[in-house]
Design a protein around this nucleic acid. Structure first.
Lengths: 342, 342
DNA sequence: CTGTTAGCGCTTTCAT
DNA sequence: ATGAAAGCGCTAACAG
């Protein structure tokens, strides 16, 4: 019906008043009589008026939109994080533009440009696996866009971050295995240049050291976050001349690949080999109810990151704000998670 | 450094030319000398000029943005669909704004308004569980916004849809169970007013009928798509005075809940009770490698839906286009999926 | 090929 | 409390 073309000028003309008054009324300004305000609102509804945010945003140079960059939307951790971000943003009247870098630096750079050109009020991101140079992110900040990293951050100063305590998580996971009798413990890591994997590895090392277990380099296997990497890793582990009795997987995808491979061969987790891996609410208990996992709630991280970003946007002080929030991840021990034999 | 404030006028002033020429050059118009074009582009880069899409969009009344509305981002099917949408949109130079209705009609209505106010060029959506009245969607279309439903659609004429063949999927799943010796087959359905669940149920009924099996009402259990519903359902099934030997679950969440419950009690799938459920690439094989599933690729649906929407946007003919694409879902039979005993 | 002019629809001083 | 006027930054006729 109404072809979306109704403007404040149309309303103004019909009512023989000025468009600025209409604008004020529609923004519920106190400087308009209740009477005219009612009249204007009634007419606006009648005509099916819808404010054009584009025009409004241009004028105010504010978009009430946040950009979100993740490596891959369909990975459960990130989709949970996005859900948390969306809910938080929605409550505050913000929309979110979602982009995925697909782990490619070039795409990430391009996305940053697009978001910047769209004048988003802030950006939340988890860097791609390839990101080692941060120039595009520095530029974004210089242009005045607020930037908050979550989960995968950059090791550069003056950033705002929402992270989990990766060192502690790695330490706890490894120590859990040790406490359950494991002595030869492998570590499935992630892309080497990502801070989170560096820190989880450090936690692993520290736990081994604390318990006087020597680190064996051949037990530390990296991955590019594909299930097939997990399969390759577990194959390597099984082919060793000695028996590995525990695995700490720093990423869920590799753990899934490995567990599948083991299941297919009738090798039992955790009886034959114990695995503690990063995981999340939904999947962890489903993959293997007996599995002990390090839980990181994507939703919680997303929510926290969005809250932090929105608070920084609100403050609107032009000086660089940097604040890092570290969330504790918790080791969820499931029944019969202790190894039975050995 | 550059405070994001550089406009085409700044460039024009410095170069002593008109801003319209700058605009043309930056849009790579053929009506500008290569020489001046180069000069302009060089200066633009030097100053760190970034086009303001807001202004450009306002002028062109086109945003190169798609709105996406899903019930819940973190559900794997939807996050895969979003990934497919994002990739397709990105390739064509479109951005996507993601919103979740959280299965609430009120939220859905509000989101439609927001997207409309942001002048998105088109909307892709899967309706919420509560959506029985479609006025807000009719309005959106009337205002000239292209609308494509994917997966969860509305049973109203003149819509564009990308769906899976729900009837066939329900039929195949049920027949698979029958062919594997099941005679007493339960059906876990979803919210009753959603078309997809109606159609899957029809498929179930048809398969039973074809094989001369009587439909028992008490074996048909609906759900609100929560894992706990799956648990409740399986409890009911187990408490029946006779033995149910197969379950066709029309939604993955209920199936997951049920499988977890069974696993905890040492009841084996599919040996003790066979389950065929909707699922997706990643999860299906992980939950239970022996499980046969009906696979619906969210990514594929998202991609197809986005392609359809973008083609409709491009055509730009003002008359209502409606086209329905039905994707086949495939029954993935995994090893040892046939029931062993009974 | 380039400049002039006129907005897109809204908000916001500044008057009155 | 309302109106007049200017302009956010860009694009698109229309001239020349």
């Amino acid at each position: 019906m109404e072809n979306n073309k109704v403007t404040i000028h149309d309303i103004a003309k019909i009512l023989s008043i000025d468009s600025s008054t209409v604008s004020r009324a529609l923004n519920n300004s106190s400087r308009v009589t209740k009477k005219t305000k009612d009249k204007i609102i009634a007419k606006a509804n009648e005509l099916g008026y819808k404010r054009n945010h584009l025009a409004s945003n241009l004028r105010k140079s504010k978009t009430f939109t946040l950009g979100v960059i993740v490596p891959r939307i369909s990975r459960h951790f990130f989709s949970s994080a996005i859900a948390g971000i969306e809910e938080t943003a929605y409550k505050k009247g913000y929309s979110v533009i979602i982009c995925q870098s697909l782990e490619q630096l070039e795409r990430e750079k391009n996305i940053v440009e697009i978001l910047s050109a769209n004048r988003v009020d802030g950006v939340l991101m988890s860097v791609s696996m390839e990101t080692e140079n941060y120039q595009h992110l520095e530029d974004l900040k210089k242009r005045g866009t607020r930037l908050v990293f979550f989960d995968r951050h950059c090791d550069i100063p003056d950033n705002s971050n929402v992270l989990i305590d990766d060192f502690q998580a790695g330490f706890d996971a490894t120590e859990h295995l040790i406490n359950n009798g494991c002595r030869i413990i492998s570590h499935f890591s992630g892309p080497k240049n990502l801070e989170i994997y560096k820190n989880r590895f450090k936690g692993y090392k520290a736990a081994l050291q604390k318990h006087g277990i020597k680190l064996r380099d051949e037990l530390v296997l990296s991955s590019s976050l594909m299930e097939k990497d997990g399969v390759e890793n577990i194959k390597k582990i099984l082919s060793l001349p000695y028996k590995v009795d525990g695995i700490f997987s720093a990423n869920d995808v590799a753990a899934i690949g490995a567990i599948q491979y083991l299941k297919e061969r009738g090798i039992k987790v955790p009886e034959d080999i114990a695995i503690v891996g990063f995981s999340n609410e939904t999947i962890s208990s489903v993959i293997e109810p007996s599995l002990t996992t390090i839980n990181q709630s994507g939703f919680e991280i997303g929510k926290t990151a969005a809250t932090l970003l929105l608070s920084q946007i609100k403050e609107n002080s032009s000086d660089i704000i940097n604040e890092t929030i570290i969330l504790k991840s918790s080791l969820i021990e499931r029944k019969s998670s202790a190894r039975q034999n050995n």
